[in-house]
Nucleic acid binder design. Structure first.
Lengths: 212, 212
DNA sequence: GCCGCGATGTATCGGTTCGATACATCGCAC
DNA sequence: GTGCGATGTATCGAACCGATACATCGCGGC
């Protein structure tokens, strides 16, 4: 999962570890906590070993020697390779069961701008199916096993059931939207005041960000 | 986390692995997928080594010998010890940061019937604080970094933000309820042999919301 | 009669991820 | 000048997952 996210992010720009973590946190903040370095660095090494990314120690720009008595530990900048881009495309195409769990779906969704419409639709529908199953499971428990459980546990189930129903509705809207071929704009009943006229087209547009 | 849940469940009745998993799934179905055996069995072994639980091979009841040519692999029934109950109480009392993340909070909440009111209140408020922070983070991203992100990523953040707002309201209700409603104080069911009966604290009120 | 098949049941293995920790530099406020 | 928070790289043990293997039981279909 993290592999997927890293490959996706590095397609926007080369980055070093710390920056990668920040971008990851910004992009995936809605679905999971900040990624741990204990995961990030080993994964970067794994990706490099596989040839999907390359690492390069940052040279101080206009490199005069002066090896520096204070041996500056350079930042390590990671860049995606052509094979890495292929790999990313492959990861998008193939969908296992993990594509539809909470984290997997979230990560895939976060990179929908780089995903073609047919795949988006497939993922959205797979996720809906999975959530519907979870919903049915919760209804079963609330219906059949209710007397075996205490009031707090039941309240938790009710809360979860409501979340499922909400997510299904959300997915329905996204699916309908996707079918009609428009950008993802779900009408929200008076949410927080974040105004945006952001429009990222269905085809993967080259978005950009820059360096300090 | 799993340790906590197992200890909590085994206080209701002794169980074998498979049953434990089913009960766990029923109780925590709203917040996490079914627990893996690759986690369950090693954890049981760990708990046994620590002395919190004991394991006993199930005897076929009114044990006639007849070692059986078909060597029946007996079910292994786990029972909580006095030290295990102490341990559970200790785990309830002490709250680390992991008490307030999605999984940790869910598990603690699921065992609120065995938790005293003051602790329930503390956990509820800690969770609210954590969700409020996440909410602020999402608002920041949606406000300040919106132009850097594509429409799908933004939609994801909006969905997450909505979930946060919902959960905060849910928590508010639970907290208000907890403060006004008098203490449930859970009676401990008989340890061995007896089928558990239902002991429900006062209803945590009416509401439904959000995602796990 | 017997055959497959799904539910019950115990168990291990490899791999991913987390949380804590360590260490070093930079800029800025006190 | 000194502390301190942000930036930055890195490792280690432990928790947890998903796949897999293997065995028994009851039940319906042929």
């Amino acid at each position: 999962m993290l592999e997927f996210a890293i490959l996706g992010l590095l397609q926007e720009a080369p980055m070093h570890g710390y920056e990668l973590r920040k971008e990851l946190t910004a992009k995936l903040g809605a679905i999971r906590a900040a990624i741990s370095y204990g995961t990030l660095y080993p994964t970067l090494r794994r990706l490099q070993a596989a040839g999907w990314i390359t690492e390069a120690a940052e040279t101080p720009a206009t490199a005069e020697e002066v090896p520096a008595l204070t041996s500056r530990r350079g930042r390590v900048v990671y860049t995606i390779t052509a094979e890495g881009k292929e790999r990313f495309a492959q990861l998008i195409a193939q969908a296992g069961p993990e594509t539809y769990d909470d984290t997997g779906f979230g990560v895939h969704f976060a990179f929908f701008a780089r995903t073609d419409q047919a795949t988006r639709l497939r993922i959205l529908e797979g996720r809906r199916r999975k959530i519907e199953e979870r919903r049915e499971g919760l209804r079963d428990v609330l219906g059949r096993a209710a007397e075996r459980l205490d009031a707090y546990t039941l309240e938790l189930q009710r809360h979860g059931l409501d979340a499922c129903e909400r997510e299904v509705r959300w997915l329905e809207e996204l699916i309908a939207n996707e079918r009609s071929g428009r950008a993802p704009t779900v009408p929200q009943p008076g949410t927080a005041g974040g105004r945006r006229e952001n429009d990222s087209p269905p085809p993967p547009g080259e978005s950009r960000k820059e360096r300090p």
